[in-house]
Design a protein around this nucleic acid. Structure first.
Length: 553
RNA sequence: GGGCGGGUAGCUCAGUUGGAUAGAGUACUGGCCUCCGAAGCCAGGGGUCAUGGGUUCGAAUCCCAUCUCGCCCA
């Protein structure tokens, strides 16, 4: 609707240039907005104000000229007026609004999708937790956000791949191996001293038990290195499988799992370093190799290879991101916990060092989650092993509520997740409020069927939808495509949760004021059509967030 | 000490990328089921948009400084 109006305004202004009523010949970018107040119309534009300087006329005078030209020029416009300091307000014809319903019905599941992405290859990398322990609630927010952003981008016409990066090459794997070996010895009756920096959680004991079942006590006498290596490998694999299971229960599956170790096995780390050296981004100082990230705005240079010859995580990250672009992704998006924000400048530097634009790497920082139970904080500490896992949360509140809550706030603000609220089946729980709207519509269709009403969507008399409540519901539905697109391009899934709450509210309000199943068959049919379209949009918006749209609850 | 993110109604948060009289949920108060799902709706009160300056026709939004909370780095 906005786009149609924009085209219409552009044509009008060009018409003014053609007949000389306006003279500058320069058309600014036309912004069409939805005014905050209904009496200012359905849409408003400020072009007249933007053109004031070039035209050497007052905004009002220009607006008058444009309004005169536009009057009666389009079947979209019911009326238009000049208001305030030079706004042009547009009132759209009801008949034009109603055509939105046909678009929704025709497109169905596809309604809201766009081709803005033009098939461009995008990779979204998210979660990427170390395989040293189960996913906790913070990973859950990253998982929900990454998955939703990937779905949003798909809906916006991008060709999206979901990837999980496994940090299986660093020192933490040795720590995992040692933790497993010590618990193993302990279970077999040895006195051990369990260091504080080892992983404390009970899952380590499960790994040790598993090893005993399969391999008996053979690592008791084997050299320490052999035991550590065994438990690192075995524990890592087991934990990774558990992570995959937890994510699947959360409705997330990755297209690709990428191992850090594979970068070393395939020689990609040295070759990446070599390329950067050749391009002059890496220099040697005091026996270490440094990446000149300051050349791209970082506040200091970063070590790639230490003087003892050991590569840093940063070296892996260089090789990894180089590999992503080599695999043909035009746009690479990383979803990180906000505590990693310090890495943003150096990774942006790497991307530019590779000869790409800084914007070819998008980074979404997801802030912390505070878990509450009836308003009181739930203690969490990774070190002690007493953290709340994603699995526990999903088991307790359900997948839909967990996803909705994780996506309810902007990523860069901290999130309070109240377990009791998420479980509650009442109006103050936004998930149920939204899902209830969908179930309620389905229930109305059931009732219609019981009463022998046969919906006939081939022959709907749209003009019967004329009440203020009909129209405001239709107008809300029409906002979905632009909401979806801006949510996608800005990595802001929370816009969809807000839209859903708005739309559900609009529907519930409509329902309380307007009878759907009436004595007049044609009106009943038209209103059923309106509800059918509402259900389509509710379902599409829920689906893109990975949340179900139940028929009954 | 430097950097990143935040500060909007009692509480939790939106705010369409600079637009007109700043919104929602929740809580509070009062109403609405003989009727398609009351898991719902309607009405009301509630604000120095942290503070001070600047940019312009116009600022919660952009710039500078200060205060404050969280995190990262030394």
């Amino acid at each position: 609707m906005k786009e149609q109006l924009r085209a219409c305004i552009l044509k009008g202004i060009e018409g003014c240039f053609a007949d000389g009523t306006l003279t500058s010949g320069a058309v600014p970018a036309i912004s069409v907005e939805k005014p905050a107040h209904a009496e200012h119309g359905d849409f408003a534009t400020n072009v007249a104000m933007q053109m004031a300087k070039a035209e050497r006329k007052s905004p009002k005078a220009i607006a008058d000229i444009i309004v005169k030209k536009l009057a009666g020029s389009s079947d979209l416009i019911e009326s238009l007026e000049v208001a305030g300091p030079g706004f042009i307000n547009f009132f759209i014809k009801d008949s034009a609004w109603r055509r939105v319903l046909n678009a929704i019905d025709t497109a169905g599941d596809e309604y809201g999708k766009s081709t803005a992405g033009a098939g461009k290859k995008v990779q979204v990398e998210f979660v990427s937790a170390n395989p040293t322990g189960p996913l906790h609630i913070g990973h859950g927010r990253g998982a929900a956000t990454g998955d939703a952003v990937a779905s949003l981008l798909t809906a916006a016409g991008f060709n999206v791949q979901r990837e999980y990066y496994i940090n299986d090459a660093g020192n933490q794997m040795n720590t995992l191996g040692l933790s497993g070996l010590l618990r193993y010895k302990e279970l077999l009756g040895e006195q051990i001293d369990f260091p504080e920096n080892c992983y404390q959680g009970d899952y380590i004991k499960d790994i040790a038990r598993d090893a005993i079942a399969k391999h008996g006590d053979r690592f008791l006498k084997a050299p320490q290195e052999e035991g550590v290596a065994f438990f690192a490998k075995m524990g890592g694999d087991l934990i990774l499988r558990g992570i995959d299971d937890d994510l699947k229960d959360f409705g997330i599956s990755f297209d690709n799992w990428f191992s850090e170790q594979s970068l070393f096995d395939e020689g990609k780390v040295p070759s990446a370093i070599k390329e950067m050296q050749e391009k002059g981004h890496i220099y040697e100082q005091e026996g270490a190799l440094w990446f000149r990230t300051t050349a791209f705005g970082d506040d200091k240079d970063r070590v790639v290879v230490r003087s003892n010859g050991v590569t840093t995580y940063f070296a892996s990250d260089i090789a990894y991101h180089r590999d992503k672009y080599a695999r043909g992704f035009d746009w690479v998006i990383d979803v990180w916990g906000a505590d990693h924000h310090g890495y943003v400048p150096r990774l942006k530097a790497v991307v530019q060092g590779l000869g790409r634009k800084a914007d070819d790497l998008g980074i979404i920082l997801v802030q912390l989650v505070a878990l509450l139970r009836d308003g009181a904080p739930v203690a969490m500490s990774t070190r002690s092993g007493e953290f709340v896992t994603l699995k526990e949360v999903v088991d307790e509140v359900g997948r839909d509520a967990a996803r909705f809550f994780f996506l309810m706030r902007r990523s860069d603000s901290q999130l309070d997740f109240d377990l009791e609220l998420a479980k509650r089946q009442s109006a103050d729980n936004p998930v149920y409020y939204v899902q209830y709207a969908h179930a309620r519509i389905k229930s109305i269709f059931d009732t219609a069927r019981e009463r022998g009403v046969q919906p006939d969507f081939e022959n709907v008399k749209l003009e019967l939808l004329e009440s203020a409540d009909d129209m405001s519901l239709i107008k809300k539905l029409s906002l979905y495509p632009e909401t979806l697109e801006s949510a996608a391009l800005n990595f802001e899934p929370h816009r969809i949760t807000y839209f859903l709450q708005d739309l559900a509210g609009e529907f519930h309000s409509f329902y309380n004021k307007s009878r759907v199943i009436t004595e007049e068959p044609e009106l009943t049919n038209a209103r059923l059509f309106l509800l059918h379209c509402t259900a389509v949009v509710l379902k599409n918006a829920l689906t893109v967030l990975g949340i179900s749209a139940p028929e009954r609850m």
